[in-house]
């Protein structure tokens, strides 16, 4: 069970959180402007790296806030957590690692 540092509450066990998948995939301002391929890419294609991965978490059984984290998907170690809307201070990996 991971330990996760909620930027609002501090460090709590994973069971208080829910993971929301890859972060920094902004919903297009006008989805209707995207062709089917670009929309499918937005909806379904993920970088899925073995290495540093920016991902979304929500402190579901806590403050209820969404935030982002950078975690190494090979070691499962968190590098940092930060508030939604902010950018990570660590470069993140693509699927290469």
């Amino acid at each position: 069970m991971l330990l996760i540092d909620c930027p609002f509450c501090g460090t709590r066990p994973e069971t208080e959180f829910r993971c929301g998948g890859e972060a920094h995939i902004a919903r297009p301002a006008d989805p209707s402007a995207l062709d089917d391929g670009a929309w499918a890419e937005h909806l379904f294609v993920r970088s899925n790296p073995r290495g540093l991965h920016a991902e979304r978490w929500v402190h579901a059984h806590g403050c209820g806030r969404w935030f982002n984290a950078v975690r190494d998907t090979f070691t499962d170690r968190f590098v940092e957590t930060y508030k939604a809307g902010e950018q990570p201070s660590h470069p993140i990996d693509d699927a290469r690692a």
């Binding site: 993920r46 970088s47 899925n48 699927a95 290469r96």
Partner: peptide, 15 residues
Amino acid sequence: SRVMDMAGVRMPLES
């Protein structure tokens, strides 16, 4: 995902 990325193909996969 990692192997396909080597060929420049991004996949709708999560591990």
